[in-house]
Design a protein around this nucleic acid. Structure first.
Length: 368
DNA sequence: GAAACGTGGGC
DNA sequence: TGCCCAAGTTT
């Protein structure tokens, strides 16, 4: 029998859609307002594994600073990393730059209009390609993200563990696709997942798809989706060294493009290997100075917990060694007043604050 | 297919 | 407090 999912869902979406800065409302769309593919792309990249609440201010700042993909393509890499700082998953920012330059350079400043074309661009995988194609170009494609996985495993009580269940989920979404309003359908599914069909305590009583839903009918929606067990999170140990000049400037280096915190600014650190012992003291300092331990920072990454011992030293003119810290790691002194605006990941903001409580205040920190 | 890759918020 | 989670992609 014909699925009633799309009509039920779209009727609900017309009344209850969320208002989001990157979104054209159903009413606007009906009035002929079109989505800006650049805005859709930017929001989709930022929203990967990231909450709407966290994304909103970043999205606004990016769009104001770089209103078009061509302007973003011309941006300095480090300026992009600065504005991305704190949002996490920094390879997204590096891929954002690469993608903008490809679109500007190879596609005349226009995004490809199909999921297939979009998926060839850096940072755009199966989900994002489908989402942009549906939302910006109204291509009729299945847009499957974590929300959609949750909604559909519940609708059909799919108990195959993720990610193996993805094939069946995608097939079910495809057969539920409406003939029109592909973008609204995708966004409606995500809104439903975010506001009604939530991971815990879903609001089945007010769900527009309750009569279509197997798990909802059975009263066990929280049994879905089935996920594989998680692995234990190892602890890693290291040290961070905050070198400061008498004028307050702090020595920063740049992380390599690939890997953890790639392309971001940090103070000199030891490696963060899996070892539990060893170089967490001044013997691992980047150069000799009057290092003093100021505290410890614990920061939890996706796949390990980091315990960082934070050292501080006032570097005088006699400490030539600090200047010898050369361009291989792109080292430079950051003025005290500039520090808060640097491309510092959150873990490094914690470390700096541990050494210098006022270091990241917008105004110049306290004199020495 | 599994592992790497950030962060802040909710309960 | 600690675990889970959020519009995934890349290698």
């Amino acid at each position: 029998m014909t699925s009633e999912i799309a009509p039920h869902l779209l009727a609900w979406y017309d009344r209850h859609h969320r208002s989001l800065p990157w979104r054209v409302t159903p009413a606007d769309r009906a009035a002929g307002v079109v989505n800006d593919p650049y805005a859709v792309w930017l929001s989709e990249i930022m929203l990967q594994q990231t909450t709407v609440k966290a994304v909103r201010p970043y999205y606004e700042r990016f769009l104001e600073r770089w209103p078009t993909v061509t302007e973003l393509a011309s941006a300095e890499d480090e300026d992009v990393m600065r504005l991305w700082a704190g949002l996490g998953y920094y390879s997204r920012a590096r891929n954002l730059i690469a993608c903008a330059r490809t679109v500007a350079g190879d596609h005349g400043g226009r995004f490809p209009e199909t999921a297939e074309g979009l998926s060839k661009l850096p940072g755009i995988g199966p989900y994002t390609a489908a989402a942009i194609a549906a939302i910006a170009f109204d291509e009729s494609v299945a847009v499957v993200d974590g929300n959609v996985e949750r909604v559909f495993t519940r609708l059909y009580a799919i108990d195959t563990p993720l990610p193996k269940a993805k094939t069946e989920i995608k097939a079910r979404v495809s057969e539920a696709l409406p003939k029109t309003r592909a973008g609204d359908f995708a966004q409606a599914l995500m809104d439903l997942g975010a506001t009604i069909c939530t991971p815990r305590s879903p609001a089945c009583a007010i769900c527009p798809l309750l009569e279509d839903c197997e798990a909802g009918g059975a009263g066990n929606p929280e049994a879905f989706p089935v996920k594989p067990p998680k692995k234990a999170k190892p602890v890693r140990v290291g040290a961070a060294f905050v070198a400061q000049r008498p004028d307050g400037a702090v020595l920063l280096v740049r992380r390599p493009d690939k890997g953890l915190l790639g392309g971001m600014r940090v103070v000199p650190t030891t490696g963060w290997t899996a070892r539990q012992d060893g170089a967490t003291g001044t013997e691992a300092a980047p150069f000799p100075a009057n290092w003093e331990e100021k505290g410890q920072v614990i920061h939890v990454f996706t796949h390990f917990e980091l315990r960082l011992s934070v050292f501080h030293a006032l570097v005088t003119s006699e400490d030539k060694s600090a200047d010898a810290f050369d361009t291989a790691m792109d080292a430079r002194w950051s003025d005290a007043a500039d520090l808060a605006g640097e491309a510092l990941p959150s873990v490094m903001k914690k470390a700096l604050t541990a050494a210098l409580p006022d270091a990241l205040r917008p105004r110049k920190p306290g004199r020495d």
